[in-house]
């Protein structure tokens, strides 16, 4: 069902309004560009530093997506495993929660010792930060199978593996895809944290380098590019989610 024209217009209008308000506020309150540059100044900076921004954006996008892809693979497998086998869940639970509780910034120096400065620590940080929500959501999805449905399948003589394949996996899919939307934005946080702490490439590095030169508009240009990549990735997975798990959304367009 196509949304009415006005509904589709709203996100664009609000976003545009946000930048206009920002511009006016900076101008009206005479905010120094070293504190908060105006959107127009950021735009000028983006145009000026276009090649560097593009190069570093690719690097960030690359590390983020590789880390994210690893997280999807491992998260899905481990989520299915702990969701299907309570013993595995009980065994791994303390370690997994413990690992997830460690601030990822604290891990980056260790990764640098192991792998050196550059791409690998960023990929790993993106991976570890986005892995957990995917795994938890898949496991939760498996736990939502109705007991009666399980009975129907068991009474037909279905094995645990058959129940997992025919019912468990499909019913976990909405949870899985919902987690992807969140996880991909988390992966950006991971890779950029790593680039900020220890890298010679990527948007995170660009921003650190720019702020060392007090080039605040370029710092904000970096922020804007990150936000834009995040929005695009979120939309991509949101679209896939809607296509694949249409049956879980039903007629309700509020959630999508």
């Amino acid at each position: 069902m196509p949304k009415p024209f006005l509904t589709r217009l709203v996100p664009w209008a609000v976003t545009l309004g946000f930048f206009v308000l920002w511009e006016l506020a900076c101008w009206g309150f005479r905010v120094d560009r070293f504190i908060l540059p105006r959107p127009s100044e950021i735009a000028v900076s983006i145009i000026k530093h276009y090649p560097a921004i593009l190069l570093n954006s690719w690097q960030t996008l690359y590390t983020t997506l590789v880390g994210f892809a690893l997280a999807v693979g491992f998260g899905l497998c481990l989520g299915l495993l702990i969701g299907a086998l309570p013993a595995v869940y009980a065994g791994l639970y303390p370690i997994l929660v413990g690992l997830n509780s460690i601030p990822k910034v604290a891990v980056v120096p260790v990764l640098v010792i192991w792998f050196g400065i550059g791409t690998v620590p960023a990929i790993i940080t993106a991976f570890v930060i986005s892995f957990f929500p995917i795994m938890v959501n898949v496991a939760t999805g498996l736990a939502t199978i109705e007991p009666e449905l399980r009975d129907v399948l068991r009474s037909l003589g279905a094995s645990r593996l058959q129940i997992l394949w025919r019912v468990g996996m499909p019913s976990a899919m909405p949870y899985f895809f919902a987690s992807l939307k969140v996880a991909v934005t988390l992966a950006f946080i991971g890779s950029i944290v790593a680039e900020t702490v220890a890298s010679d490439r990527g948007i995170g590095y660009l921003m650190i380098a720019a702020s060392a030169r007090f080039d605040v508009p370029l710092v904000f240009a970096g922020l804007l590019v990150i936000a834009l990549m995040g929005v695009i990735m979120y939309e991509v997975f949101s679209y896939i989610d809607r296509r694949v798990t249409f049956w879980a959304i039903r007629g309700n367009e509020m959630i999508s």
Partner: peptide
């Protein structure tokens, strides 16, 4: 579990990602 039985409950427990036909084929 004996596989010569069929079951139905108060809740229809049909799989929402399968069409009616595919549900019956399960």
């Amino acid at each position: 579990p004996i596989s010569i039985c069929g079951m139905a409950f108060q809740n229809s427990t049909l799989l929402p990602w399968r069409t009616t036909l595919d549900n019956v084929l399960l």
